[in-house]
């Protein structure tokens, strides 16, 4: 791929003797909003720190905009990072926090003022310049952190769990805000998250990671509709994943003869894909809850617990009752290890 703006080649990252990321290869395109997604300890934050230059790779290369930066120190890479904790400087007000990097460059006063004010305006904080970090809400602090990175016109902007410290309402607001800023500035953005909904909603492409390796790389639609592995499927809401052996569905709890034949060793179903009320399988309802448009059931079955969603139009099945259900082959997603 010649269009790689950031290229990680054969990157190995370790803390002391323990290898966190072995031999990673990843290309990121210019102007793209990319999410590094995975559970904690999957190496996503480590990878981000290596791109920033806060962690020296054990081996491999990092190329940004055609320049090998592997041995370049963090303060010379031209990369912005919005920390999970925001890492604002408590002794400086919002304006001085944003102007910090420009002042280091010893730019003319007028230019510093103009660029700082522009950056503060971009994140919608005009009027808050004199506030100290302690006098601002979490959302405002994050906007300051964002402006502080943006004002440096970084080649790449990294964001570490940008929404994790915000409440639900602010999270939605900030999600839209980040996308807007990215489109407005055209900056290449890499953000780290453990929340698949966040990644699906914001990213152009998602890098799903596990144990320091890339499990799957693709657009949100790719990952959501076509997860390739049981791990990816589990992360994307396929709550029922079963092995397929000789036409039987198998779990650690038991097996059910269904006569399915597929290329894949495993099959996955979202709760929506499970049909309740009819079908060859039997289960007992152990939990039932109303979720607006549908009803969520947990069924105790010979295959273990099965999560199923049924339309509210369907008659409710009480807890403790037996019910027939189906795991249709047609709506199953074939999965590999």
């Amino acid at each position: 791929m010649s269009d790689a703006f950031v290229r990680l080649s054969d990157l190995t990252l370790s803390y002391g003797k323990s290898v966190a990321v072995p031999d990673l290869n990843l290309d990121i395109r210019e102007g793209e909003l990319i999410a590094l997604l995975g559970p904690s300890g999957c190496g996503k934050t480590t990878t981000m720190r290596a791109i920033a230059g806060l962690l020296a790779p054990t081996s491999g290369r990092i190329v940004i905009d055609g320049r090998d930066v592997t041995r370049l120190s963090a303060n010379k890479r031209g990369i912005g990072l919005v920390f999970q904790s925001y890492a604002l400087f408590p002794h400086l007000n919002a304006f001085e926090n944003v102007a910090f990097g420009l002042r280091l460059q010893k730019l003319p006063q007028a230019q510093i003022r103009a660029r700082t004010e522009a950056a503060i305006a971009t994140v919608g904080l005009t009027g808050f310049e004199a506030r100290k970090p302690a006098e601002m809400s979490g959302g405002q602090q994050q906007r300051v952190a964002l402006a502080r990175s943006l004002v440096m016109e970084p080649k790449v902007l990294l964001l570490d769990e940008p929404l994790s410290n915000l409440d639900a309402r602010l999270r939605l607001e900030m999600r839209i805000e980040l996308q807007r800023v990215q489109k407005a500035t055209g900056v290449t953005m890499v953000f780290v998250t453990h929340d698949q909904a966040e990644a699906l909603a914001m990213a152009d492409r998602i890098v799903l990671m596990r144990d320091g390796k890339i499990v799957q790389l693709g657009t949100p639609a790719d990952l959501y509709d076509r997860p390739e592995t049981a791990f990816a499927a589990g992360f994307m809401g396929f709550e029922n994943i079963l092995r397929l052996e000789d036409g039987d569905l198998v779990s650690e709890h038991g097996r059910a003869a269904v006569g399915y034949h597929a290329q894949a060793p495993m099959l996955g179903w979202r709760p929506d894909a499970v049909s309740v009320g009819t079908g060859p399988l039997q289960g007992r309802v152990v939990a039932s809850s109303f979720a607006g448009g549908h009803r969520e059931y947990v069924l105790d079955t010979p295959l273990g617990p099965v999560n199923a969603n049924a339309p509210v139009s369907l008659a409710q099945v009480g807890v403790g009752e037996q019910v027939a259900f189906d795991l249709p082959l047609a709506s199953a997603r074939p999965l590999f290890a």
Binding site: A52, N75, I79, S85, A87, F100, L104, S149
Partner: peptide, 15 residues
């Protein structure tokens, strides 16, 4: 004092 404060300063160009 969280240590990411210094990392933030370094990324903004500080030694």
């Amino acid at each position: 004092l969280r240590s990411d404060m210094e990392e933030a300063a370094v990324l903004l160009g500080c030694s």
